[in-house]
């Protein structure tokens, strides 16, 4: 069996919601039936075959080609299988994802991995704001799984994140890990203003010096053995994870955000 390849014919002017294309839904459908799946495009509905060409016969592995930032909801609510996006993707990639894996060989929009509970998303390029974060009206962001971003991430990465891991090889924007509830965020590059703003628990592992708010208390430099466990797991993620593992387990530990009675930890390189 060969992967099912979905190729966008001509990029329309409006955004397309691809959330109906979850591998677990497609695997019980024949190709003709898949072609008849309705897709929302702006304020209109089209059949999938009107917008895309279909090849291959294994919807458990979905390849999306000729992509762009107008394709929203790729892999939303998927529970199993694989999706490979050969190019850029729009907003809500992996929204509510509960299993499987998504690889984006390009950039992503906002809300990447929002509300995901399990599975793995890897983005070779940059992503927008609120990756792993809570959408408006939601109390919690990402609640499990692993998000690997090899480029840069925008503002409010992992806001109100509840569980899971986010690894960013590049830099991140402002308010990284804001109001975080638990989980782990690791950043190799620079972070913007107020990392960990309002965080309750969880870990922010920074590999570059950062300017912290005054509401984080310096607890000194320590060798944290649990990082060995994290790094061992991250090495299996390939380049995006092993980069952190090479930096060692010694770190300066800050606890906060004390402004909200938080007991989160912010780890920065030792002096």
């Amino acid at each position: 069996m060969s992967p099912m390849v979905v190729t966008l014919r001509d990029p329309p002017a409006r955004r397309i919601d691809l959330s109906p294309l979850s591998p677990q839904r497609l695997q019980h459908l024949r190709r003709e039936a898949i072609g008849r799946i309705p897709l929302q495009c702006g304020n209109r509905r089209y059949l999938l075959r009107d917008l895309f060409t279909l090849e291959g016969d294994d919807p458990g592995t979905l390849v999306i080609r000729n992509t762009g930032a107008i394709l929203d909801g790729i892999g939303a609510f998927m529970r199993a299988g694989r999706i490979r996006v050969e190019g850029d993707a729009g907003d809500y990639v992996g929204l509510g994802m509960a299993g499987g894996s998504i690889d984006v060989h390009g950039d992503c929009g906002h809300w990447l991995g929002s509300a995901m509970t399990a599975g793995r998303i890897r983005v070779d390029g940059d992503c927008g704001d609120f990756a792993g974060g809570a959408r408006p009206g939601e109390r919690r962001g990402m609640a499990g799984g692993t998000l690997v971003i090899r480029g840069r991430a925008g503002d409010r990465l992992g806001e109100r994140m509840r569980r899971g891991q986010i690894l960013v090889t590049g830099s991140v924007g402002d308010y990284c890990g804001a109001r975080m509830l638990a989980g782990t965020i690791a950043v190799m590059g620079q972070v913007g203003v107020a990392p960990g703003y309002g965080m309750h628990r969880g870990t922010l592992l920074l590999r570059q010096p950062a300017t912290l708010t005054a509401t984080f208390a310096d607890c000194g430099v320590h060798e944290l053995d649990y990082l060995r466990l994290l790094f061992a797991a991250w090495r299996e993620l390939g380049h995006g994870g092993s980069a952190f593992a090479d930096a060692g387990v010694r770190a300066r530990r800050y606890v906060g955000d004390l402004a909200t009675g938080g007991q989160g930890e912010l780890l920065v390189p030792p002096d």
């Binding site: 499990g144 569980r163 638990a182 782990t184 628990r201 870990t203 320590h222 060798e223 944290l224 053995d225 649990y226 466990l229 994290l230 797991a233 007991q263 930890e265």
Partner: peptide, 25 residues
């Protein structure tokens, strides 16, 4: 005593307990 920290790595949950020589995992 409230300072313990949970870490879920893969499917395994670990507890970090602050002790006088660092942390007990």
């Amino acid at each position: 005593d409230g300072h313990q920290i949970s870490k879920l790595i893969g499917a395994r949950r670990y507890w970090r307990l602050p002790v006088m020589d660092g942390e007990f995992i």
